[in-house]
């Protein structure tokens, strides 16, 4: 489904601020797999997702998705295959437009926008039904500007928009990190529902060890732009992951994670 072949990305090359955000990443994700990604701040988690979404072009390597070589595709073209939910609830919606207008933009994700009337009656019925599933009462507020919604509501809407047309790949980038615990729980519940109903292929970056342990069938750990850890889903492995997560949490807290400790971790726990 998703094949990443040795991609690298360096920002601000040749300056004092040079950052090697991705260093020779290789990754193959099967169809229907849900991969959780953890790592310290600045380890390249968002960079990995953004390189797939086409927010920037990689310096080297190849990316293919659903059988297509997308390495050189511009972002808007890749968006036809990819749903993307960001950490900031403000990023995924247009605040001055109504809920219905935001949804209609998602209905045609990846398609040419023509001169047809946007808010067709048949669509608004659809909107009502699927928005009702969110369980937030938003179906009565389809004409309200999105700017009047709470962060959690906006993120729920973004999630719905990213998956309105079934994406080949769903990218979730710490999509609950900016929310209060109650909203975060709700968004995770919605994510699980949508992902299992549509049987989506997912890359989910998370700041929450609990989410990483509980969700998905595979876990990646990134450090300094490299995948330093990659476990699949059997029960046995999961217990060890929990230990590792505990350790990782500890290290992260003390901000001691460098190349050597990562190497040590890998040898000790896998």
């Amino acid at each position: 489904m998703l094949e990443i072949d040795n991609i690298s990305k360096t920002f601000n090359t040749g300056t004092a601020n040079e950052v090697r955000a991705l260093v020779g990443i290789n990754l193959v994700v099967d169809k229907g797999s849900w991969v959780s990604i953890i790592g310290t701040n600045g380890s390249g988690k968002s960079a990995l997702l953004n390189s797939i979404a086409g927010t920037f072009m990689v310096d080297s390597g190849e990316i293919s998705l659903a059988g297509q070589q997308i390495t050189n595709w511009p972002k808007h073209k890749r968006a036809g295959l990819i749903g993307h939910v960001f950490q900031n609830p403000f990023t995924g919606t247009a605040p001055n437009m109504s809920i219905a207008e935001n949804l209609v933009l998602a209905v045609y994700r990846g398609q040419k926008r023509g001169l047809g009337w946007a808010l067709k009656h048949s669509l608004t019925n659809d909107f009502k039904n699927r928005v009702r599933h969110l369980g937030l009462g938003l179906e009565y507020r389809l004409d309200s500007p999105v700017g009047t919604l709470s962060g959690g509501q906006r993120q729920a809407l973004t999630l719905l928009m990213a998956t309105w047309v079934k994406p080949k790949l769903l990218l979730l980038d710490e999509h609950t990190a900016a929310l209060d615990p109650k909203s975060a729980t709700l968004i995770i519940k919605l994510s699980e529902e949508i992902i299992s109903r549509q049987n989506l292929t997912v890359l989910m970056v998370t700041h929450s060890m609990e989410q990483a342990a509980k969700l998905g069938d595979r876990l990646l750990m990134l450090h300094q732009g490299k995948i330093i850890h990659d476990v699949g889903g059997s029960e046995k492995k999961r217990t060890r992951v929990n230990e590792l997560l505990f350790r990782f949490d500890e290290l992260r807290g003390r901000d001691q994670m460098d190349e050597n400790t990562a190497e040590m971790l890998r040898r000790n726990y896998i």
């Binding site: 979404a53 972002k75 808007h76 073209k77 968006a79 036809g80 993307h84 960001f86 403000f90 990023t91 995924g92 919606t93 247009a94 605040p95 001055n96 437009m97 207008e101 935001n102 209609v104 933009l105 998602a106 045609y108 994700r109 990846g110 398609q111 926008r113 023509g114 001169l115 047809g116 009337w117 946007a118 928009m161 990213a162």
Partner: peptide, 22 residues
């Protein structure tokens, strides 16, 4: 229209509209 709506959305949140394939 769909085109006009996409145009307004571009001004409102261009990051979002790119992510939606415009």
């Amino acid at each position: 229209t769909n085109l006009g709506t996409a145009m307004r959305a571009t001004g409102d949140n261009d990051q979002m509209i790119r992510a939606l394939g415009v």
